[in-house]
């Protein structure tokens, strides 16, 4: 079961504090772009190219802000990319340490099974479409739940509040409509 919110909240807050105290605020969604760029550049090496003072790209998004994304694509072993890989390892170890997930849960989450059904095709299709919308939205917004909502609101950034307002304004009605547990 999940940690009591009082402990869990303080623990999660400490991690966010540690990140900004030692390095910089936590963010995740940019790394989807970096991985896309790496894959794209592997297929077509002309996508990201070195310049006299850094990197640029034939893609306007990778080339923006002085080519900082292009640089991360060219040299991915940087803090933010390794951070996401470490997150995955940390979560996997934590799940393993508490005994792992059941076969049913690994296939379809309990709430979905209770409210939508136990067909895997539908669950996987909706997870795929959901992922598409989440990352499209996160890149349009310039950040996700981690970077905008948590890190942003922690720093009292105006953008963090705007993002959180938009996210919950859409998420709550959609969830109420989709998940009706008896």
């Amino acid at each position: 079961m999940a940690l009591n919110w009082k402990y869990g909240g303080v623990l999660l807050g400490l991690v966010f504090f540690l990140a900004v105290a030692l390095v910089k605020p936590i963010g995740v969604s940019t790394q989807f772009v970096i991985l896309d760029g790496i894959l794209w550049n592997a297929i077509n090496p002309d996508v990201v190219t070195a310049t006299d003072d850094g990197f640029t790209s034939t893609n306007a998004y990778l080339a923006k802000s002085g080519g900082k994304y292009a640089e991360s694509v060219a040299e991915p072993w940087n803090y933010s990319f390794v951070f996401v890989l470490a997150m995955m390892a940390g979560a996997a170890l934590s799940v393993f340490a508490r005994g792992g997930l059941s076969r049913e849960e690994r296939s379809i989450p309990e709430l979905w099974r209770n409210t939508v059904g136990d067909g895997t095709a539908k669950r996987y299709a909706v997870a795929f479409i959901g992922g598409f919308i989440v990352l499209y939205g996160a890149r349009l917004a310039g950040g996700c739940t981690s970077g905008h909502m948590m890190s942003g609101m922690m720093q009292t950034a105006l953008s963090g509040y705007i993002f959180a307002a938009g996210a919950f304004a859409a998420a709550i009605p959609v969830a109420i409509f989709m998940y009706k547990e008896a």
Partner: peptide, 23 residues
């Protein structure tokens, strides 16, 4: 930021994941 938030929220509710928790 607001439009992107609306989109992310929609997909978050549909899938139950955001980028960090998804990975």
């Amino acid at each position: 930021v607001f439009i992107g938030g609306l989109l992310l929220g929609t997909g978050w509710a549909m899938s139950g994941y955001c980028p960090g928790t998804g990975v």
